[in-house]
Write a protein that binds this DNA or RNA. Structure first.
Lengths: 229, 229
DNA sequence: AAAAATAAATAAACACCGTATATTTACAGA
DNA sequence: TCTGTAAATATACGGTGTTTATTTATTTTT
């Protein structure tokens, strides 16, 4: 069984393809992603890419996973940079990091939460680990609030079967989480996502001096509504 | 100046093109929109479409305006179907109509709030009238609450210059609106949009028996936070 | 060292796409 | 009937993702 290891004209061509893809996405937007354009820039032929990604969608999936990983890094770093004693600070840091990441990498945000690639359908299972990791920071902080008995709500609407599947998936990646925490975390996520996605899309004008007054108002609303004290 | 009126093989070809486009969007998704496929189905040649739409983007814009109009119809009908004496019912009806419309026409929702067409950039000014009309129902009800002295919040963060432009645009289409009402309406919009967009995208599992428990919770949160009594 | 094996790149082609240009067709008004 | 013009077609160009066959290069085996 002969199996040579490596001999590439460009070392780490797989990474080079992804880097070039990101460069073009940043410059021309995600929908303009083109295998031929990537090949042109790397001075290879388009079919050569197929040695590293079975098709265009596989490349997009790899990019999405990278984007989730970058997003998760920001989230986790935000959580861990705030003092362990101050859960409110952690929650706020996570909320701000969410918006900051989106405004720093709008194309990556669109790649994850928009549907900018024609015909592409996200393979949920493949993306799930990086996706789950990215929201684990929020989940863990809410769970800490819950463990400390500081969540203000105590009733969760009856969950549907469809939801239970998601919940079980999350548990395998995020560990034990109380359904109540999940419910609260999902609401927080949805609120934060609502503003940011409207902003990124251009439907919502920047608000307030620093353009984030509405967002800060919502972060405060979240704390006030869901957390005691 | 000779200017004949009409002689088309297909009467109302312009409308037929749009109808076929919607049919294909519903079946294969918005990103799969193809002028040639539309022409094929209508048994005309692709360039014939250019007699009715200068390019593909113009067709997409027309579709988006139609989607906004349909969306606005639902919103306005929801507002007007509730008793004039009951503002809370009106607000709830608008909120439910928002989600119902999105779940009835997920492709139209994505066409408006996603970026599913490669390379397409929404011409805001052109779309604005239908867009403004679609949120006018929410704005008017919030303004009625405000006029009745029933808004719970009374401070609006200082608005940025960028926002003022939007605000002036809105005023020309929606009439006199108090900045406070605008602020509250935008928060409501963002919250509702946050959940629905995550649902439509598949990021959020259906929640509760009828799959809308989380949504109903948020509608209740909105009333509770922003409206007196 | 020569030969065999195999991975990686290329070359060429296919079926799409949006769109521009030139041409034909069909009909309204003079 | 002739003419002007709008609408449709025919054709072509450059772009796309992808498949197939072929060449190139390197590694392992003989």
């Amino acid at each position: 069984m002969v199996r040579p290891i490596k001999k590439k004209q460009i070392p780490n061509l797989q990474d080079a393809i992804k880097e070039t893809a990101w460069k073009q996405i940043a410059e021309f937007g995600a929908p303009a992603l083109s295998l031929r354009a990537i090949a042109r820039e790397l001075k290879i032929t388009a079919p050569a890419i197929y040695n590293y990604f079975p098709d265009r969608d596989a490349l997009v999936t790899a990019l999405i996973i990278d984007a989730y990983t970058s997003f998760g890094d920001w989230q986790i770093e935000a959580r861990d940079s705030a003092s362990n004693n101050n859960l409110h600070k952690k929650l706020e840091a996570i909320g701000l990091a969410y918006r900051n990441w989106a405004h720093t990498y709008p194309q990556r945000y669109q790649l994850i939460f928009g549907t900018p690639i024609p015909g592409y359908i996200t393979p949920r299972e493949e993306v799930f680990p990086s996706s789950a990791r990215s929201i684990s920071a929020l989940f863990s902080v809410v769970e800490e609030f819950h463990a400390a008995g500081k969540l203000s709500i105590d009733a969760v609407p009856a969950v549907s079967e469809k939801y239970k599947t998601h919940y079980e998936q999350w548990r395998t990646y995020l560990g034990e989480i109380n359904p109540l925490s999940v419910f609260v975390a999902m609401i927080i996520w949805a609120r934060v996502h609502g503003i940011v996605s409207l902003e990124i899309q251009g439907n919502l004008p920047s608000f307030g001096k620093k353009g984030d007054a509405l967002y800060l108002f919502e972060l405060h609303s979240i704390s006030h509504q869901f957390i005691k004290e």
